[in-house]
Each structure stands twice: as structure tokens, then as C-alpha cells.
């Protein structure tokens, strides 16, 4: 599906409903930087997931690996986690101390794993005699337990920590008091009552640009086009199944990236997507409040996680076409056509 080409009629109509936020709005630069920083957080988290996946593949037993591989897996995980936590602290400085305290705990555990000489064999490993004879494999399985094994208490694995960080950060920046977006919107909503959909260009609108004016359909954003491709322009945003039309849409767009927030008074939905046809970069990430029934929104193939604060879902490392189709489905589901 080559969406770079033509603008469909339908998409044009929907885009016209968006009100364009421009550089003249206060706080917009900080909002854009915040969006970019959040994406960096996601990117670092993705890196962590990739490390985990790699370790999982290697532990299956077919590989010849050395201790260096395992220790470098540990180091890389600590580094990635640190980068993620740093991003989180920048986004929400109030969380800084607690985040670093938890991070330091993980760092210490990592240090223990590295300096261990004879790591303990776990129950699973005893079953496979081939593996248990190699200390490298035993260490690897210990590392994987630390990363994502069965948690004896919540938040004790690295991945748990990662997930919790996501949700807390998102809740804070999307719906916290005095959040950047709240400031941005309060200014806009008061100026133009009745409009509830906002669009801005992530890069062009952040600072005083050149003379060219920007209209909503001048923004070339592939994921946004995909999202709206099959949507019904008159029926957007029924997040809570009760035709509540006071939801606010804020779409921050660039050529290949979309950051979409749908905000209702007690409920939020957040979507991040990259569609560039470069598979290592493409992904969809979603955070939805616990009250939202994501089954009605998400197509197949998403990895989902449920936490106390909300649901996480993501799709990555798959064909670009899959990502594209998923976006179209989601868009359709967010605004089912009235028959």
C-alpha cells in the first residue's frame, strides 16, 4: 500500500477538521521536545526488549557462545535500562530519586551476576543436561531470570521495571496536573471552543519557522494517513463506547512518525507509530487506560501487557506492510462507520 502518493478524499475531509497548532502557541517547543524525548524512551525500551529476545534465542542451546557474550549482555542491559531511566527522569523529574534507587538495585544485581564464578543452576536447566555442563549457559539463564523471569515481587525484573516506568511516565505527562499538554490545550480550547482535534508538525512548528503557512493537509504524515484511511470523519473518538464526543485529539506528526493522544476527562489513549518502510525502525506502541476495551481497537499480532495503571501494547520487528495494515485497522476501529 503506497500511501506516499495520493491523498484520498476522505482523508482530506478528516484532516480539515483538525485545527492547526502553530508556533505562536506558548509551550509548544517544550511539548515537541517532550514528544521527541518520549520517543527516545521508547527506542531505548525497544533496545532492551531486543537484548532480551537475543538472550532468549541464544539460550535455546544451539549456539556456541562465550562468557563475554553473557557479560556483555548484562552490561548492555544495564546501559539501556540506564538510558531509559534517564529519559524518564527528564520527562518527570519528580520521579528521579525513586527511579534511580530502583535502577541502582538492578545495577548491583548485575554486578553480582558478572562477578559470580559458579552461578546457581536453576530448576529448568537441570532438565537439559547439555546446557548445564556449560557455565556460560548457566549464567545466561540466570541473566534471563533477572531480566524477565518469574517475579517474586512485582517490579523486581528489569522488564517489569521498564513497564511500570512507561505507564507512570505516560500517565503523568498526558494527564497530570500542569502537564505540558494541559497548558497547550487550555490555551487553544479556550480560543476556539467546539474544536477538539489538534494537529501539529513535530519539527516545523516548534520554533519560529520561515514564512510558509501550514495548513493541516500540507502536513505529510504517512502513519496519520494510514490511520484515517478507513475512518469515518464524523464519528471519531468513541473510546468508551458511549458516544462521548468531548474527547480531544492531539496529533503530532512528521513524515514517518505519529504521536497521537486521545484524551477524555477520565480516560486516555496514546498511540505512537513509525512507518518508514525501514523495518528496524517501524513500530506501533499503545497505552490505554484500564477502562478502555482494547480488544475492540487492536487487530491481531500485538504484544499486550496489563498493569495496574493501564494497558500496554506494541507491535515491532514485523513487515512494514503489517504495521501499515494495523494502523488502518486501528483507525477504523476508533471510528466505526455508521452503516
Amino acid at each position: 500500500m503506497h500511501c506516499r502518493a495520493v491523498y484520498g478524499e476522505m482523508i482530506m475531509r478528516i484532516l480539515e477538521k483538525f485545527k492547526k497548532i502553530t508556533h505562536k502557541e506558548p509551550g509548544i517547543r517544550d511539548f515537541c521536545i517532550q514528544t521527541i524525548r518520549f520517543r527516545k524512551l521508547l527506542e531505548n525500551a525497544r533496545g532492551l526488549l531486543a537484548l532480551l529476545a537475543d538472550g532468549n534465542e541464544k539460550v535455546l542451546g544451539e549456539y556456541i557462545l562465550d562468557r563475554h557474550y553473557v557479560t556483555s549482555l548484562i552490561d548492555s542491559s544495564v546501559e539501556r535500562l540506564g538510558m531509559m531511566i534517564y529519559d524518564a527522569c527528564v520527562l518527570v523529574p519528580e520521579f528521579g530519586e525513586t527511579l534511580y534507587t530502583q535502577y541502582d538495585r538492578h545495577k548491583r544485581r548485575a554486578g553480582e551476576l558478572i562477578s559470580q564464578n559458579s552461578p546457581s543452576a536453576t530448576k529448568d536447566m537441570e532438565a537439559n543436561t547439555n546446557i548445564s555442563s556449560d557455565p556460560e549457559y548457566r549464567l545466561l539463564s540466570d541473566v534471563l531470570t533477572w531480566l524477565n523471569g518469574e517475579p517474586s515481587d512485582p517490579g523486581s525484573t528489569v522488564i517489569d521495571f521498564m513497564k511500570q516506568t512507561f505507564v507512570r511516565v505516560l500517565k503523568h505527562i498526558d494527564t497530570g496536573n500542569n502537564s505540558t499538554i494541559e497548558l497547550l490545550l487550555s490555551n487553544n480550547v479556550s480560543k476556539a471552543p467546539g474544536s477538539n482535534m489538534f494537529l501539529l508538525d513535530l519539527w516545523e512548528d516548534a520554533v519560529v519557522p520561515s514564512v510558509k503557512p501550514h495548513s493541516p493537509y500540507a502536513i505529510n504524515c504517512i502513519p496519520l494517513k494510514l490511520l484515517l484511511m478507513d475512518a469515518d470523519g464524523d464519528n471519531l473518538s468513541p473510546l468508551l463506547d458511549d458516544k462521548n464526543k468531548t474527547a480531544t485529539w492531539v496529533a503530532t506528526a512528521s513524515e514517518y512518525q505519529l504521536s497521537l493522544k486521545i484524551l477524555e476527562p477520565d480516560c486516555s489513549f496514546h498511540l505512537e507509530a513509525t512507518v518508514s518502510r525501514h523495518e528496524p525502525s517501524d513500530f506501533i506502541f499503545i497505552f490505554a487506560d484500564t477502562t478502555i476495551n482494547t480488544e475492540n481497537i487492536l487487530p491481531q499480532g500485538f504484544h499486550t501487557e496489563i498493569t495496574n495503571y493501564g494497558q500496554l501494547a506494541w507491535k515491532l520487528d514485523t513487515a512494514s506492510k503489517d504495521i501499515e495494515d494495523s494502523l488502518i485497522s486501528i483507525g477504523r476501529n476508533l471510528s466505526p462507520k455508521t452503516v
Binding site: 541464544k58 549456539y63 556456541i64 557462545l65 562465550d66
Partner: peptide
């Protein structure tokens, strides 16, 4: 480069 599978070698 390690890690590799025996078949790669």
C-alpha cells in the same frame, strides 16, 4: 563472530 551456530561455521 561469537555467538554463532555450528552450522554457520
Amino acid at each position: 563472530a561469537k555467538p554463532f551456530r555450528p552450522d554457520d561455521l
